[in-house]
Nucleic acid binder design. Sequence first.
DNA 1: CTGAAAGCGCTAACAA
DNA 2: TTGTTAGCGCTTTCAG
Lengths: 350, 350
Amino acid sequence: VLNSKLNQRLVAPAKTVAKLDVKTLSDIASRTGLSKMTVSRVMRGEGSFSVKAKEKVQKAVRETGYVHNRLAGSLATQKSSLVAVIVPTIGNIVFTEVLAGISQVLTPAGLQPVLAVTDYDLEREDALVETMLSWRPQGVIIAGLEHTPLTRKRLKRSGIAIIEVMDIDGSPIDCAVGFSHSEAGQIIARHFVKQGYRRIAYAGTDLTYDVRAAKRFKGFVKELSVHGLHLTADVMTPLPTSLEAGENALRKLMESAADIDAVYFSNDDMAVGALQYCLRNAIAVPEAMALAGFNGLGIGQGMPIALTSIRSPRVETGIRSAELLLDRLAGKGVPRTVNLGLQFLAGQSS
Amino acid sequence: VLNSKLNQRLVAPAKTVAKLDVKTLSDIASRTGLSKMTVSRVMRGEGSFSVKAKEKVQKAVRETGYVHNRLAGSLATQKSSLVAVIVPTIGNIVFTEVLAGISQVLTPAGLQPVLAVTDYDLEREDALVETMLSWRPQGVIIAGLEHTPLTRKRLKRSGIAIIEVMDIDGSPIDCAVGFSHSEAGQIIARHFVKQGYRRIAYAGTDLTYDVRAAKRFKGFVKELSVHGLHLTADVMTPLPTSLEAGENALRKLMESAADIDAVYFSNDDMAVGALQYCLRNAIAVPEAMALAGFNGLGIGQGMPIALTSIRSPRVETGIRSAELLLDRLAGKGVPRTVNLGLQFLAGQSS
DNA sequence: CTGAAAGCGCTAACAA
DNA sequence: TTGTTAGCGCTTTCAG
C-alpha cells in the first residue's frame, strides 16, 4: 500500500534539456572568442591575461554554469590535490576527531582529504589503498602501523607521502604520528595496582582486529605481571565497541564466579556503558567494582562518577599528521616518529 | 630541546630510485608484448581476452606494482564512480551514522562516497559543491533542503542525481529522504504540556546556522502556543553542540530568575550534558527540572534517568538515500519525498 | 581474441 | 597578453 502510494508520485529523471550544454573550456573559448588557453589561465588565475579577457570569461562562466573538470586538469598536470585518509571506523568519535584535525590543516592548503573506512579489515584496507592510489593522491594518511605486506609494498612503491597515525609502537613506512597504546595499558595497570585491586579483568573486542586495543591489552597485562599479578578474567565481544557491548561484558563478568574488583575496558565507549549499568543498578563504583577506559571522552568525564581514563591527543594527531604531510610535499625531511603523549585522568571510578 | 631532538632524526623524502618506474598501461603492454588495449581489457575484466594474456598481465602487474590510473580512465569513459556526500559536521555521531548507511549501499555497487564538511556555512557549502562537481561525480547526497540559490542552480544544472537528506520540511531539488524536524518539536511540546510543565525553556545553538534545529524549535514553539503556552526563556550558544554547551545552557537558565520547570534542548548532546550536570549536583530530574533532547542516542537512553528524546532514523536515511541514488542512476523514477518517520522515547527525564 | 587510431578535457611549453 | 602544439593515460570504436 505504502509502495503504491509512493509510486504515484515518482519523479522522472531530469531531462537532458534546458541546461545549456556547456561542458568544456572550448565552449567558453568559442563563446568569448578567446582561446582555450586564455580561458584556462583565467579559470585558474595563473599566468597573465587582460582584465577584459577575465571579465569576458567570468561572464560566460556565470551565464553557462560551466564547471571546471578536475579529472582532465589533474591528468594534464599529473597531480591531483587529493589526500587519501584511511581509518578503521567512523562509528567512533575518535577517528572523526582525527579527521577534523586533518581537514583543518589540509583544506586551507588547497588539498582535499578523501576518506575511506576499512572496518578493521586488512584485506579491505589493501583494496582501499589500491583504489585510493588509483586516484593519484598527493599523499596518504592511514591509521595504524600494521598492514598486510602487500599494502606496505604498495604504499612504499607509490613514492608519495605516507603518514601513519594513532600509533607509534612499531616501525613506520615513512613517518608515524600518535601515541603509545602499550604505555596507556601500563598506566592503568599501575593505577589499579596502586589502588589495591587484585582481582582484575579486561573487557574488549576481539583483539585480532583492533590491533591498537591489543597493544593496550598487552601493555596492561605485562605491567600487571611486573607487580606479580595476572588477569583474573577477560571477556571479548565482537566489533564494534558500543555502550551495550560494555554493559554486556560487565554483566558477564559479574555473573561469573570470578569475583572481580576492577575492569579495564578497551575504550571509553565500553567503559561508559558499564558505568551507566552500575549507576542504574546501584552497584557501587569503585567500591564494589572499579572501572577504567581509554580516550578520555567528555561523556566519561561528565558522569556523576568520572571515569578513570587516558586522554588521547586525537585532534592534535590529525593536525600534526597533516602538517607533516605538507612538509613532505614541500620536500622537507620529517621525523620518523612523533609521540604526542597521553594524559592520565584519575577520575573516581577506580 | 624537543625540536632539536626531533631534528636529529629527520628522514629525507623517499628517493625516486628503487621502485621500477612502471606507471602506465603502455609499460605493462611492452613488458608483456601485448597491446595497451588487451592489457586494459584484462585490468577491467571486460571484453574478451585469452587466459594466456590474462596470466601475462597479472604477472607483470604483480611484479611491477602497477596501479591503474582512474583519473585517465574516468576522463576517457566520461564517468567517475564517485558520489559526493556533503554534510554540515562530522563532530556529531548523527552524520557519521548517515554516512555509514550510505557507504554500506554505495560500496558494493562499485561507487565511492567522497565526503565534504560544510561546518554549517552555506558559502562554504557552495564552494564545496563546486569542487565536488568538478570531479564529475555520479551523484550528490547533501544534507538539508536549504542552500544558496547559486548552490541549487549548480546542483540542478549538473544534471546528475541529487538526493537531499535529513529533512523533508521544504521542497527538494530532486528527491528528499529523512524526517520532519518540525514534527519532532511538536511531539516534545505536546509531551511537556501533557506532563504539566508550564514554565518551559529552550536551549540550543544559534538557529541561523543549524536550520534543522531551527525547524524543531519552531515546531516546538508553535505547538506550545496551540496549548496557550509560550516559551518562558531560551539560551542560544555558539556552535558546535557539546555536552559542555548543554551544561552551561542549563546553568544559565537556572541562574536566571525565570524559574524554569522544563527545558527542550537542541539535541541529545546538549541534553545529556545537562542531565549529567543534574546528576552530579543532585538536582532532581524530572521533579526539579525536566529535560528532553533529540536523536535518541544510546548515551541518553543509558543514563540512570533515561533521557526523553526522539529517535531519528539515521542509518536508514543513509541507506535509503543511497538506494534512491542507485535508482536514479538506473534511470528509474524516484519519489520526491521519503519520510522515514520518528520514534518518541518517553524516558524518565520529563 | 587482438590491435590501431582517435579522442576524453585539460595544461605545459613554447612561439608570436 | 594571447595562441598553437603536443601530450597526460586511458578507453571507445572499428578493423583484422
